[in-house]
């Protein structure tokens, strides 16, 4: 039974071969991390506003020019401010944002550890 399942799963996965898995291109990755200023809840990737379309053209050009992903983010940050990036950089504004959850995790771990070693 178990083996049957294995075979089934493997078979199903391989039958997906006709999907072109490699086509995950950089453009999509970058546009997913940029926030659209027109429809302010959506990423540039998801938005179809004029603004988002132009941004896609620009990124395409920049990638052709050989700019790295980070350089492209930096470019948009300069134009529109940090707000446009969905992935906030770690700086003095965001220490709490990035570190507080981790601190909470450590704190929780400490409580559990204390409970375990208590005799």
């Amino acid at each position: 039974m178990k083996i049957l399942r294995f075979v089934l799963v493997i078979f199903l996965l391989f039958s997906l071969g006709n999907l072109n898995a490699k086509e995950s291109n950089k453009l999509n990755e970058i546009t997913k991390n940029l926030r659209c200023l027109i429809c302010q809840g959506q990423s540039v990737y998801d938005s179809d506003s004029e603004f988002a379309n132009s941004i896609k053209i620009i990124i395409d050009k920049k990638l052709d020019d050989g700019l790295s992903e980070d350089e492209i983010y930096e470019y948009f940050k300069k134009k529109y401010g940090e707000w446009i990036l969905y992935d906030p950089a770690l700086n003095k504004n965001t220490y709490i944002l990035w570190l507080l959850p981790l601190l909470i995790f450590l704190f929780g771990g400490a409580i559990i550890f204390k409970k375990l070693i208590k005799k």
Binding site: E50, I57, I58, K79, Y80
Partner: peptide, 9 residues
């Protein structure tokens, strides 16, 4: 294509 507008921010 709207790209110059983006250059202007």
């Amino acid at each position: 294509d709207g790209t110059i507008a983006i250059e202007w921010g």
